[in-house]
């Protein structure tokens, strides 16, 4: 357990989640399942990002009573990845909503959720 840090555990979780997401994206035939695969992939990336900003035994980057105002640099974790993840999560939501709307539209046209039924364009 000596080398096993919190952020390494979460990082590994994130990486595996990314792989599971890609697996879902590549193997599931149902359009909604594919979108689910994407959200997993996305969440995995977010976990990786937050893990990378973590510093052992430090608190959240919010200056309140628990933080010594004169020694902020040595008491908080990195705020940058967190800020980036905030942005990424919102972007992910926008993309997911868009994908689902496409799925809905495709279903309305052809009454099928099988991705194999949308191969008209090719070559």
């Amino acid at each position: 357990m000596e080398n096993l840090n919190l952020e390494i555990i979460t990082l590994i979780t994130g990486v595996i989640l990314v792989l599971i997401g890609i697996w879902g994206l590549l193997t599931q035939k149902n359009l909604i399942k594919i979108v689910i695969g994407f959200t997993l992939f996305d969440t995995g990336i977010h976990i990786i990002m937050v893990s990378i900003g973590y510093v052992k035994n430090r608190t959240a980057p919010i200056i309140d009573q628990s933080v010594n105002i004169n020694d902020v640099g040595n008491s908080v974790v990195d705020p940058v990845p967190q800020a980036l993840v905030l942005t990424a999560i919102v972007i992910g939501l926008g993309v997911t909503a868009l994908m689902l709307t496409y799925v809905l539209k495709m279903y309305q046209k052809r009454k099928s959720l099988e991705i194999n039924n949308y191969n008209d364009l090719k070559w």
Binding site: P61, N74, P79
Partner: peptide, 23 residues
């Protein structure tokens, strides 16, 4: 990519700047 990752022990310059001068 992550083989060398062993967690941070300190903030990098950028983050440190944000933490120290940010407020």
């Amino acid at each position: 990519l992550f083989v060398g990752f062993n967690g941070n022990t300190d903030l990098n310059t950028l983050a440190n700047h944000y933490a120290v001068s940010g407020p």
